[in-house]
Simulated assay, not measured.
Amino acid sequence: MRSLLFPLLACLFCSLSLAGQDGLFPAFDIRSRLLGGTGLSAEGIDGLWTNPAGLAASPRSIAASAAAEQRFGLSELTMANVGASYGTGLGGFGLQLGSFGFDAYQETRIGLAYGRQLTENFRVGLDFVGFATNTEAYASTFDATFGLGFQLRIIPELSIGARVFSPFRAERFPDEYLPQLLAIGLSYQPSEKIIVNAEVHKDSTFPLRTRVGLEYLPAEELSVRFGVATENTELSFGLGYEVIDGLELSAGAVWHELLGIYPGVGLRYRQD
């Protein structure tokens, strides 16, 4: 039975990786996931997975996040991550740790990120990421790459974010390479209660993908999040609720036109 389980799960994961087009396994925080995968203009701990430049806005206190997503209702296809950030006079620093897999196949992602404010309205960021892959009966592998991020505030209500991940082609296995990603987008905040994100993401191997997210804050402690992505179509919806001062619990689901519905949950702690 176990010999049949591994190839089945491997095929399922390959299908969701190709559909996601965002890395070996999707790297995400729960807020970004429920906003259609947008977040290039996110700040502090919210920018840890989406744009390292956002770490430049980290307060001088520790912030942390954790998220998990399960697909097909299978525990073997659970993706989880934890992260932390801290701001200093020299900029903001972040730590990423993510995992996916089961006994026979395991992927781990670890990264260090840094963001710095260069001018009043312009930030840059850099992250170094390593991917470890362990497969039963095969040799383990470890691959490393890096990414760059930028954020520019045009006016107080409008920002531009951009990110390049793995700009140089890096071979992972024979004829298989680490994903190369390029993304750029806008974030518009017409009021204190509404944030709208619109982004385009391009993987070197796949078609251009458009992502749109809307966050509505009807109350100080409540966030309502919607998102949509193309190629393949995804729709997302979820809520974030600040259960105590600084600690937010988020939950929601993503509907994928090929893979169906999969739920996600997350925690975020920060002191603004």
Rank of each mutant, 00 (worst) to 15 (best):
L181S: 02
L181F: 00
L182Q: 02
A183P: 15
I184Q: 15
I184T: 12
G185L: 01
S187D: 12
S187A: 09
Y188V: 11
Y188D: 12
Q189H: 07
P190E: 01
S191T: 14
I194G: 14
N197P: 09
E199V: 05
V200G: 12
H201W: 13
H201L: 12
D203C: 06
D203W: 05
S204V: 06
L208M: 08
T210E: 04
R211Y: 00
L214R: 10
E215D: 06
E215T: 10
Y216R: 13
Y216T: 08
A219R: 14
A219G: 02
A219M: 12
S223I: 09
R225E: 06
R225M: 08
F226Y: 15
F226T: 13
V228T: 10
V228Y: 11
N232S: 12
N232G: 14
T233D: 15
L235H: 13
L235V: 08
S236G: 06
L239K: 14
Y241E: 10
E242N: 07
L247R: 03
L247S: 00
L247K: 03
L247W: 11
L247F: 12
S250P: 15
S250G: 09
A251H: 08
V254A: 04
W255P: 15
H256Q: 06
H256P: 05
E257L: 00
L259A: 02
L259Y: 13
I261L: 05
Y262W: 00
V265F: 02
V265I: 04
V265P: 04
G266L: 02
R268D: 07
Y269K: 02
R270P: 04
